[in-house]
Design a binder for these strands. Sequence first.
DNA 1: GTAGCAGACTTGCTTATCGCAAGCCAGCAA
DNA 2: TTGCTGGCTTGCGATAAGCAAGTCTGCTAC
Lengths: 165, 165
Amino acid sequence: MATDRRVRNGVPCPIGRAIDAVGERWALLILRNATLGMTRFEDFRSDLGIADNILSTRLARLVDLGLLTRVPYRDGGRTRNEYRLTAAGADLLPVLHALAAWGHEHTTPDEPAEPMRVVHRTCGHATTPGGHCDHCGQPVRREEEAWIRPWRSPEPIPLAAPVTG
Amino acid sequence: MATDRRVRNGVPCPIGRAIDAVGERWALLILRNATLGMTRFEDFRSDLGIADNILSTRLARLVDLGLLTRVPYRDGGRTRNEYRLTAAGADLLPVLHALAAWGHEHTTPDEPAEPMRVVHRTCGHATTPGGHCDHCGQPVRREEEAWIRPWRSPEPIPLAAPVTG
DNA sequence: GTAGCAGACTTGCTTATCGCAAGCCAGCAA
DNA sequence: TTGCTGGCTTGCGATAAGCAAGTCTGCTAC
């Protein structure tokens, strides 16, 4: 099963292995956008401003590594492919959250903006780095968690559910 | 103050800004090694197998961004520089921990090895993703946390303390 | 004085990757 | 048949990475 496949890439250190898998700019940005529910080639391309060939290569690699999977869908008469997170890809969420927290604390946007929030959808309160609700105290499952990116929209964005590849 | 300097790099998303700052292979590996207490050019170079000019460029960039700082030290008669984490650099620890957890779960080393552990130095038990001690339940401060990398040594490696730049 | 040392950084070059823009391809509709 | 769409491929120039040697600095030894 693709979702159970462990990337074998050698070094003893799990940090090193994770970096070998995803420690580069475009992979991380693609995974962020996939987490937001983005699935289509053109959407990734235009949102990220990435070259076709680079995007194509990166998507293929992430599929190969089992972090994304191609899902066929019908578009008019044609079968097209979209790209969705696998469980392994979705499990990078804590990395993305840690990056968000660090980015919020240590970097500054060009334009002042409400900061991004990670919230418990049910009650609207923030979640902690450990994945608990600030308000309820309970662990928050992925499907009850959302991002709010106020510079885009005040609506909570549910996190994309992983699919089995 | 260098430690209070926020990287200004534009995009509204803090994840995107964090990725712009550190979302590339060598920066992340250097920061991992700096967290382990590595400070010297030659040590980074030989451990990472990175080219001189690439390492030099990356170190300078991380210093420029305020994640590392050069600290003069005496070597025999000469003043040399070592590279140490700033507070901003040290605050990337949750990113490294998240990468470690993901790498452990989803990648496989070439040689079987005891996995890396993040422990509370005082009692020896593991710490949670939220930074609490599994055993004591208390939040664990950085200076009470250590990594154990059994493929290298069974000794806990204290995490490098940040210095003011 | 010169020669030698160590190690951080620089340099010149080759190789690899990225990015741009156009082209190709597949599967459909008219 | 042509035309459309959009994912992927291609050819090319630009940029970054990597290799290996050189330079620089501040010291010691002779």
